[in-house]
């Protein structure tokens, strides 16, 4: 039996809102040691989502037997919208479940809402992602990255990211003209989440689809900062840290074959 109780429903609500536009169906893997993990790839096989919610993400967590819960994320999102962000949220499943029970509790108002979501058999192939060497790692405020990704998409369907040891430059070249935004590395000791940190082994110049970057920044409400790891001619990794877990996106770049 699985029983995972979140102190607030907001984490799960934000996670599902962050991924449901990229992948429609996905398997939730549940185990006592790892908590809940997800690996899902979008239909175009360009963007991969890796979610980890350790048992420490939960107020209470037990999972007697490893479970795979196949979910339609649009349906899950409909149910998660029924609860308030500050409600307790509990996910419950039997050992051979055909449905997932989702319970919201508002202890102050003595309100309990229960929903049952039908599960599906989802055939998904799993990709092996090794801990990658990277040419550079950038940590910046998640909102600042979201603004660049959203603004630049209006100019071009591609966004070029150029990193040197003291700045990150985003460049868009479109039919109406061009644009660039430079963010300089800075350490803000009063407010560390406002810092822009660049850890550079080698300068990087990579191009990504603006559409996919705009899917990734849907995770912005989950974390104050995002860490981006880039390597020449290889997929980039975008990480939003959660308390006791993470939501990572792996995005294949654009380049000449």
């Amino acid at each position: 039996m699985l029983e995972g109780k979140f102190e607030t429903a907001s984490t799960m609500k934000k996670v599902i809102e962050a991924i449901k536009d990229s992948v429609k169906l996905c398997n939730l893997n549940c185990s006592q040691n790892d908590g809940i993990t997800v690996q899902a790839i979008d239909d175009s096989r360009v963007l991969l989502i890796a979610l980890k919610l350790d048992p420490s993400c939960f107020q209470e967590f037990r999972c007697d037997k490893d479970l795979v819960l196949g979910l339609d994320l649009e349906s899950l999102s409909k149910i998660l919208r029924q609860g308030n962000p500050e409600d307790y949220l509990t996910l419950i499943a039997e050992d051979s479940p055909d449905s997932l029970l989702i319970v919201f509790e508002d202890s102050k108002k003595d309100r309990i809402s229960e929903f049952s979501l039908k599960l599906m058999d989802i055939d998904s192939d799993v990709l092996t992602i090794d801990e990658m060497e990277h040419d550079c790692a950038i940590t910046l405020p998640a909102a600042a990255f979201a603004k660049v990704a959203r603004d630049m998409k209006t100019l071009s369907e591609s966004l070029q990211i150029l990193v040197t040891k003291d700045s990150v430059k985003f460049k868009a070249d479109g039919s109406i003209g061009t644009g660039s935004v430079i963010l300089r590395a800075r350490t803000n000791l009063d407010d560390t989440k406002e810092s822009i940190l660049i850890d550079l082994n080698k300068p990087v110049n990579l191009t990504f689809g603006a559409k996919y970057l705009n899917d990734i920044v849907k995770a912005t409400p989950l974390a104050d900062t995002v860490t981006i790891k880039l390597t020449d001619k290889a997929p980039a990794m975008f990480e939003y840290k959660l308390q006791g877990g993470f939501l990572r996106y792996y995005l294949a770049p654009k380049f000449e074959d």
Partner: peptide, 14 residues
């Protein structure tokens, strides 16, 4: 123009 690559080119499948 550059071409969109796919992840399967970089990551092993199972």
């Amino acid at each position: 123009p550059s071409h969109q690559q796919t992840l399967t080119k970089f990551f092993g499948g199972s």
